[in-house]
Amino acid sequence: MQDPAARRDSILGKWLERTVATYPPQTSGFLRNEKDRFRNPVGHTLQEGLAALLDQITGEMDTVRIREALGEIVRVRAVQDFTPGQATGFVFLLREILGEELPGGVPTAWQKRIDETALLAFELFVKCREEITEIKAREAQRSFYVRDRMRQRERGEGT
């Protein structure tokens, strides 16, 4: 496989650039340039996550690390103004960037990894959306806690 180490910064820079471009133009600069992770959690998540994904896709392909980094990014995009395709499609941007950066073309193995990563992104997206439904139900339960507890007591169901 090709060693993309020399091109890493350039590839990562382009991937980040094109991913923040999926946000409104007035915002993409902020997401890219604000380095304080607490003032810019979305940008920070993208910067860290994309770097980890790039290293794994072009390196070890450790699925635990992939899942972790991808999960962080997708969790953010799952509640932002994106369709499912837009929320997860940033993964495919890597293929075109690698094509531009690597003169010998993108190795087939990496193409396959990008596809696998994109599928995993979609899976994680769906998982986030399912979680939302469950979380909402639990929130409703909490708001009637005392009433439910009183009823349990009346029925002698203990504490």
Partner: peptide
């Protein structure tokens, strides 16, 4: 809301 949504 801006930080979390990116909506200008």
């Amino acid at each position: 809301f801006y930080i979390g949504s990116g909506d200008p």
